[in-house]
Amino acid sequence: MAAGSAASYCLHTETQALAEQSAHLEDHAAALQKDAATLSEGIALLRRQQDEEKENKQNKRLKENEENARLLKTLQEKEKEAELIRQECASARAEQLAVQKRINDLEKKLKEITSDENGGAGWEPVGPDTVKPPEVNPPGPETDARLRQTARDYLSARKHGKAAELSGHFAPYCNYQYANNREVPNAAIMNNIRESWKKWPQRAYRILKVAYQDNHVEIIYLYRYANQKGRRAQGYARERWQTNSIGKIIHWREDLHPNTPPRESPGYRLAPSNINQSKQ
């Protein structure tokens, strides 16, 4: 009887322990299911975020491609415009050279005609009645005023970087000091001057003298330069021009003097400094 009771108690105890263990396992399984559901939701969220990011990147890439295509089209159009401008410039240049050639031919023909009229002696005097050619810059108040104004306009164009105006003072071709004393096109001279402008973006000039002898002109001036880094340069310059019959420079030289202004060449006429002079 006692043995049966003990066996019954042990069976009851084991059954209860098994029931508790089963309940514990069920709770753990429920917790695992909950964690699995949470993890699944997290994975789904990450996938949505990845899909959205991928879509955004694709849209961004598409927009970039569209923008690049638009920029390429604009660049191609600008290149076409630039090519047209270059062709127009080349045409204008050729026309300018043709005009200058006609001028030179006419001057040569005029000289030959005058030479024939004077017995083949050209412009050299052969007697008291021989007609001399007109001087390019006949000495007098009108020439004084004109050349001083030319000098002011020339230095003003240099000071303010007005390339078109400055280019107009030179002939289509000019023997230029900084081209190894060779005759070069007007454009090559302007390229050299632009390099100087880049080096010295701040410039100031003051005319001291203008002197001339027929088609030879000299301008003497004080210059002051400065760059963006605060570097400065100052001195005196004398430019020596030889001009053609219409006053365009065909031969250009300069000499620089750091401390004292140079003198004009002997025999040159000085244009008075009180003829409507303004500071440069």
Results as ranks from 00 to 15, higher is better:
Ala29Glu: 09
Lys132Ala: 14
Lys78Ser: 08
Gly42Arg: 15
Lys101Gln: 13
Glu88Phe: 06
Pro185Gly: 03
Ser273Gly: 07
Lys34His: 14
Ser196Arg: 10
Arg224Tyr: 04
Leu62Pro: 00
Ala171Val: 00
Glu66Met: 07
Tyr268Trp: 03
His12Leu: 12
Pro262Phe: 02
Asn227Leu: 01
Ile275Met: 06
Ala98Glu: 11
Leu110Ala: 10
Asp153Met: 04
Ala233Leu: 11
Lys229Pro: 00
Tyr225Ile: 01
Asn59Gly: 02
Ile246Val: 14
Arg240His: 10
Ile275Asn: 10
Ala211Gly: 08
Met1Leu: 11
Leu84Asp: 09
Ile189Ala: 03
Tyr221Gln: 04
Lys73Gly: 07
Trp200Tyr: 00
Ala31Cys: 10
Asp129Thr: 14
Lys60Val: 11
Arg224Cys: 04
Pro172Tyr: 07
Leu208Pro: 01
Arg86Ile: 00
Ala82Arg: 15
Val217Lys: 04
Asn215Glu: 05
Ser265Pro: 03
Trp200Phe: 00
His12Gln: 13
Lys111Cys: 04
Asn65Thr: 12
Ile275Ala: 05
Glu117His: 09
Thr150Tyr: 08
Ala30Leu: 08
Leu62Lys: 14
Gly42Phe: 06
Arg102Glu: 10
Ser156Ile: 07
Asp153Ala: 11
Tyr178Glu: 07
His257Glu: 05
Trp241Gly: 02
Glu165Tyr: 00
Lys73Ala: 14
Lys198His: 13
Arg86Tyr: 05
Asn180Lys: 15
Ala7Met: 12
Trp123Tyr: 09
Ile220His: 07
Ile113Asp: 14
Thr143Tyr: 01
Glu107Arg: 10
Trp123Phe: 12
Leu106Gly: 01
Leu84Asn: 08
Ser156Gln: 12
Leu18Ile: 08
Asn192Gly: 08
Ala90Ile: 02
Leu72Tyr: 07
Ala187Pro: 00
Leu256His: 09
Ala37His: 09
Val126Ser: 09
Tyr212Phe: 02
Asn118Ala: 12
Ala29Phe: 06
Ala211Ser: 10
Arg232Gln: 13
Asn180Ser: 09
Leu39Val: 06
Ile43Asp: 12
Phe170Met: 01
Glu239Ile: 05
Arg182Pro: 01
Leu75Thr: 07
Arg203Ser: 05
Glu67His: 10
Asn227His: 01
Asp35Pro: 04
Pro185Cys: 05
Tyr154Ser: 01
Glu55Ser: 14
Lys248Val: 01
Tyr212Cys: 01
Tyr9Ala: 14
Ile189Tyr: 01
Asn191Thr: 13
Ala19Cys: 01
Gln149Cys: 05
Asn137Thr: 05
Pro172Glu: 08
Arg231Gln: 15
Ser265Ala: 15
Ala30Ile: 06
Pro258Gln: 04
Leu222Ser: 11
Gly247Tyr: 03
Glu239Thr: 00
Gly230Val: 10
Glu52Trp: 04
Ser167Tyr: 02
Arg48Asp: 13
Glu254Ser: 06
Asn104Ile: 04
